[in-house]
């Protein structure tokens, strides 16, 4: 198990780790399989993260007043 795959899928690895992880990915079937499996999660988090009608250029997070 290589936990960096989650950070890679989410796009939050630091630059140096990103390069190294992609090289690792080339030869690790387990991480390749998890890369596919975890793909839905950031997309679903985007529904929470991004305001649907964002019109400002700085893309503020969704307003969450009850």
């Amino acid at each position: 198990m290589h936990p960096e795959v989650a950070a890679y899928v989410l796009g939050v690895l630091d630059d140096a780790d990103l390069q190294a992880f992609e090289r690792h990915l080339d030869s690790c079937e387990r991480c390749q399989s998890e890369l596919k499996e975890l793909q839905d999660v950031p997309d679903l988090l985007d529904d929470l993260k991004l305001q649907p009608s964002a019109s400002e250029d700085d893309d503020p997070p969704i307003s969450m007043s009850r």
Binding site: A7, G11, V12, D14, D17, L45, K49
Partner: peptide, 8 residues
Amino acid sequence: TYLRDRTI
């Protein structure tokens, strides 16, 4: 991390 666009 992800929700605030921050790196590890």
